[in-house]
């Protein structure tokens, strides 16, 4: 699909961070990511949605931790010490996303990205901004702003 001969247009390129969840490949635009850090046991938060793991201390800031797999409705996963937290800026809020581990950081061309195919079920299109194929893997680009709309807590 990607035209290898095509001149690489820097202005059209994006850097993405890829990771795996439940045998599926996902990625997030690096522009949204502030840092990636190791697992810290969060303090549970009452009355929160099921995918909210709790709060951790990020150098003095209170960072809510979300289980991305659970949020996406993927099969439940076991927490392991290899889990990492991707600290992402979503709509001016800083949140932490638990994932199994980060696979790679890639530079891709905008041209490589295809729109999400229309499926019968509603679920996928809501949070996948587009898809692309790299080395025979299909990578789903997540639209964090739709996955985690602003003002969680009671408003959620």
């Amino acid at each position: 699909m990607s035209d290898q001969e095509q001149e690489f247009d820097v202005s059209q390129s994006r850097e993405i961070v890829t990771f795996r969840l439940s045998e599926q490949d996902f990625c997030i635009d690096i522009m949204n990511i502030r840092e990636i850090r190791g697992w810290t046991q969060p303090t549970p938060l009452p009355h929160s949605p099921h995918y909210v793991r709790g709060l951790i201390n990020l150098r003095g800031a209170v960072l809510p931790i979300m289980d991305l797999a659970e949020r996406l409705g993927l099969p439940a996963r076991e927490a392991t010490a290899r889990d990492v937290i991707i600290v992402a800026m979503v709509e001016s809020q800083l949140i932490g996303l638990v994932v199994d581990g980060v696979s790679d950081i890639l530079t891709v061309s905008q041209n490589d990205i295809q729109p999400t195919p229309t499926m019968g079920a509603e679920s996928s299109q809501g949070y996948v901004e587009g898809i692309m194929s790299i080395d025979d893997r299909m990578i789903r680009i997540l639209d964090l702003a739709r996955i985690f709309p602003k003002a969680l807590g009671e408003a959620a």
Partner: peptide, 20 residues
Amino acid sequence: ENYGEVSGIAAATILGDGRI
């Protein structure tokens, strides 16, 4: 700032062990 209001909870703090 990063989350929203939580019923029953006024705010958070950081304890001596670094936990919230």
